[in-house]
Amino acid sequence: MGQNNRRDFRENHASKNSGEKFGLVDLPEPYVVWMAGEGFPAGRLGRQLAEVYEIKINGLEYLFNPFCDNTL
């Protein structure tokens, strides 16, 4: 990958990720519950979604509040 391609990638990545942050914990609870019923995918994403499911059904989303400062 050339130097210009690397710079373009970083600039595009930064522009796509600027503004409001979004994470798996931000997924709507009904969607996560539906996905739990359908079965999570294999691999890392599936494990993360299963953890988000446990967090949401136990009402623990507030634990992420310190990490969700929108002023960054």
Rank of each mutant, 00 (worst) to 15 (best):
M1Q: 11
M1P: 15
Q3R: 14
N4A: 14
N4R: 13
D8K: 10
D8R: 11
D8G: 00
D8Y: 08
R10W: 14
E11G: 00
N12Y: 04
N12E: 07
H13V: 02
H13F: 15
A14Y: 09
A14I: 07
K16L: 13
G19D: 02
G19N: 01
K21Y: 07
K21I: 07
K21W: 09
F22T: 05
F22Y: 12
L24F: 10
L24T: 03
V25M: 03
D26A: 01
D26S: 02
P28H: 04
P28E: 10
P28F: 01
P30M: 00
P30E: 05
P30F: 03
V32D: 08
V33E: 12
V33K: 11
W34L: 10
M35D: 04
A36L: 03
G37P: 13
G37Q: 09
G37T: 11
E38R: 12
F40I: 05
F40A: 00
P41K: 00
A42I: 08
G43R: 01
G43F: 10
G43P: 14
R44I: 13
L45E: 08
L45N: 05
L45Y: 07
G46I: 08
G46Y: 08
G46H: 02
G46R: 01
R47Q: 11
R47N: 14
Q48P: 10
Q48C: 04
L49V: 14
A50C: 04
A50E: 13
E51F: 15
V52L: 03
V52F: 07
Y53I: 09
E54R: 13
E54H: 09
K56F: 13
K56Q: 15
K56P: 07
I57W: 06
I57C: 00
I57G: 00
N58P: 02
N58M: 02
N58F: 05
G59I: 14
G59M: 03
L60P: 03
L60A: 06
L60W: 13
E61D: 15
E61L: 09
Y62D: 12
L63G: 04
L63A: 03
F64V: 08
C68H: 12
D69K: 09
D69Q: 04
N70G: 02
N70M: 10
N70Y: 08
T71G: 00
L72H: 12
